[in-house]
């Protein structure tokens, strides 16, 4: 059977709780070059949106590419996207390997 083409999905996470609640691993210069979701905290905005899943790789945050971003910078970009008052949501472009 054909190998499923990897798909990128745009997920909008509404800021409907005071925490985002995701743990990410990886970043530039690690064996996981793009940040991958490893945990989602129950009750956080990420969990509430229902579309983010452990294992998804985050390609972009609000249109900002995470390609080449070191781990701490990728985490900072995500944290700032959640903290900013300019938007009531965060748009994640995620990629689900092998889906």
């Amino acid at each position: 059977s054909p190998v499923p083409a990897p798909t990128a999905t745009l997920v909008r996470v509404l800021k409907n709780s005071n925490t985002l609640g995701i743990a990410i691993e990886g970043g530039a210069n690690t064996r996981q070059p793009l940040p991958r979701i490893v945990t989602i905290q129950k009750g956080g905005s990420a969990h509430n949106c229902g579309q983010l899943r452990v294992g998804q790789i985050i390609l972009e945050v609000n249109g900002i590419s995470l390609k080449g971003q070191e781990h701490k910078d990728a985490a900072r970009i995500i944290a700032e996207a959640f903290k900013t008052k300019e938007k009531d949501h965060i748009d994640f472009l995620v990629f689900e390997p092998g889906l």
Binding site: G21, I22, I24, G26, T30, Q32, V38, Q41, H71, K72
Partner: peptide
């Protein structure tokens, strides 16, 4: 021996 370190950093974003 691989260039990238084997451990992978993990951070919580609250």
């Amino acid at each position: 021996v691989s260039k990238n370190p084997q451990w992978v950093p993990v951070t919580w974003v609250f």
